[in-house]
Design a protein around this nucleic acid. Sequence first.
RNA 1: GCCGGGAUGGCGGAAUUGGCAGACGCAGUGGACUCAAAAUCCACCGGUGGCAACACCGUGCGAGUUCGAGUCUCGCUCCCGGCACCA
Length: 862
Amino acid sequence: MKDRYEPAVIEAAAQREWEAAGTFAVREDATKPEYYCVCMFPYPSGRLHMGHVRNYTIGDVLARYMRMQGYNVLQPMGWDAFGLPAENAAIENDVPPARWTRDNIAHMKGQLKSLGFGIDWSRELATCDADYYRWNQWLFLRMLERGIAYKTTGVVNWDPVDQTVLANEQVIDGRGWRTGALIEKREIPMYYLRITRYAEELLSALDGLGEWPERVRVMQANWIGRSEGVNLSFPYEIDGRRGELKVFTTRADTLMGVSFVAIAAEHPLAELAAGRDAGVRAFVDECRRGSVMEADLATIDKKGVATGLRVQHPLTGAEVEIWIGNYVLMAYGEGAVMGVPGHDERDFAFARRYGLPILPVIDVDGRPYSTAAWQDWYADYGRCIHSGAYDGLDYAAAVAAIAKDLETRGLGRKQVVWRLRDWGISRQRYWGCPIPIIHCPACGDVPVPDDQLPVRLPEDLMPDGSGNPLAKSRAFLECRCPKCGAPARRETDTMDTFVDSSWYFFRYASAGNPHAMVDERAAYWMPVDQYIGGIEHAILHLLYSRFWTRVMRDCGLTALAEPFTRLLTQGMVLNDIWFRKPASGRITYYNPAEVEQRLQGDRRTGILKSDGQPVEYGGIGTMSKSRRNGVDPQALVDRYGADTARLFMMFAAPPEHTLEWSDEGVEGAFRFMKRLWKLVHAHVAAGPAGVPDPASLDAAGRTLRRQVHQTLAKVGDDIGRRRTFNTAIAAVMELMNALARFTDASPQGRAVVQEALELVVLMLSPVIPHATHALWRELGHSTKIVDESWPEPDAQALTIDTVEIVVQVNGRLRARVPVPAGADEAAAREAALADATVARFIGDSPIRFVKYVPGKLVNVVT
RNA sequence: GCCGGGAUGGCGGAAUUGGCAGACGCAGUGGACUCAAAAUCCACCGGUGGCAACACCGUGCGAGUUCGAGUCUCGCUCCCGGCACCA
């Protein structure tokens, strides 16, 4: 063994050994408990970024730890390989998307291997492979059969210059990103998946996901958005035509307080009113131009316009005027709301602005109501007043009575409304999974028969930015109708890439099966025991996966409803932002590596190394291409090795927090690697060491040995239960400091050090697997450390005969005194009162009482 | 605006169940080694006062509960993430 720590050499050697032994290729084994650890698979953009390294390091540490715990651990990897960037790259670099994607995969796979992740590569998959996406198509056909998939129209962004449909992200300020043309909204036929059919189950099952972060569950619950209320109708007669204006309300108890009805600008009645009045037309157009989805709309003024149209109150028959309100959403409920200014803040503001009557109809604990200003309690539940027959009823009783009366008149009933909408999966794009439908002039839309799957995506086409190349490819387009045999045309839309990622974790566990989507191996591995990925996927990806798994269940493919037992959402990786902003022109960003930092007082300044001129500090933000503050993991690995990169990532912050990049921090991790290496080397160079004999250890030896086993217990708890890798590493560092100070070279001293080093190496092996692989051998073992079990702390080493307890006087720390372990209150009290400092602070005051926390603390209260 | 999370030294962070605030690391300061530098090693490192022993103050702000609060309760301020004016 070399004195010098040379990561490049030892890492390559360790990786070769794992590969040769097939260490991470796992098979189903009913005799062992299984542990399935999945990290969200990457989009093959070309290079690994720091977020990937962090994500996969967390997964790998857990996987290796669980392996040492005796589990049969599967850690697979794959590629989320369809999607828009490949088409953009094709246009920019004149490379077909298929080749660009596969080249990227090859390069990134090499990078993943160099980081030493314990991945079972025999199960690798790429969603752009027909072996994979044929099962998207197959399940889609099952969904069609069950009415879960259906076709209807949807609105898309149409670029009239390129004659193409754009994704939302390709529309900037209402214009096409390439052409700058004003984008039109177009209605086209699309396929949808009826996720709303599962809304109730997707919501209620969240309660069972106890090992998911609370905030993810809350975000999902809000997204699904269940509301219980009453759907009711306001009858009208306009131009001699009878109709009913429907509204949904969760506050049917306030129905007698209605003073107007507000409808969305997109509502059919708004269109009718706009046709009669130029003022109304202008307002409707203004509302439509404004975005409906932005959060800052929450603070805009509640504006509206009267339509001159009137409806009848469903219970009293009184005339109620219809207004168009900019705060009413067409996409939620019925696109219309009843206006109850007395008890709804928005309606209140609206009524005040336009001088509409405000009628209090709910009494809240007799508090005095004033129409002068809104109070939050106006929206509270109470008892009905000024409501005729309903006076005196509380919320539940009033809603029940009103719903019943409405139902008698055929004008309403109780209803549950969901915010969640069906999932539109059609994309007018080339680089995706073809939707397996054939359009026949005679038979209509005909599903591709199972025996003709997969519908292969031709890989030789080149997108040019104008429309979908599939729609121009006769070889793809032209086919025969499976029903009547007549010439027909293939569907050219492809599926949303969220489809691809909704079930890949099932496929890892059924890798390579050409006959079935999943097989009995999936039953062995699934559900995923630990799923790890970015918080940005908290809603859509996770919700779609939960939905897709339920569809698979209902098709008899799995017994599971929930795919992920435990979820860890890792924080993003941040770095400093440096920029220059010339008086005129665009802001320019500089990579932190190009900047020399200066500290002026508490202000951070810097100069650009290349020209010596100052640059401005822009705070700290997520690593991104646009701000040029990324750090290339490859450069890091090349310079320090994978172990240092892994150690830094796991040490710098807890996994769920953001992680601030720090070159000095990386240096610190590297220093630790060198210290560990040298410590083991120095110990081994002094010759063989024996096994410690607890009975013959001196005090220092016993103390060190106790710290070793205490650390072992803590590290196991930190990794296994708490998932706080940073504190686990800190504890080992602390132990290493103690070890470096321990200089007893006697046989027993060396035996304690031998044991300590072996345990340190074992404890760190999930985090820094390469160096520990070499050090394990160095410490005299012929086995591979990766095959070792996680050690158990020695209970005997942990026993102590004396503890130091803290003594407080009136809650303030005054002394520490040693007492025998397990001392009772009387003994601890006596020891505390015997201390001179304690006595000084007590002085002449009489002792009122003494509080004793066994083994920890005595508090003397005077 | 709503929902969720947070605020602890110069910095990242620790304090797991209400019981020693600041572990560990980074940066910094002083020293050893060296012709010198780097690397490495040792020591110091929240603030104020004090020669020192030591004392007092200190976990965003203001109250409260408790023998005891970074931790619990109430009310604020600011920051981050998410979103949906959701009837």
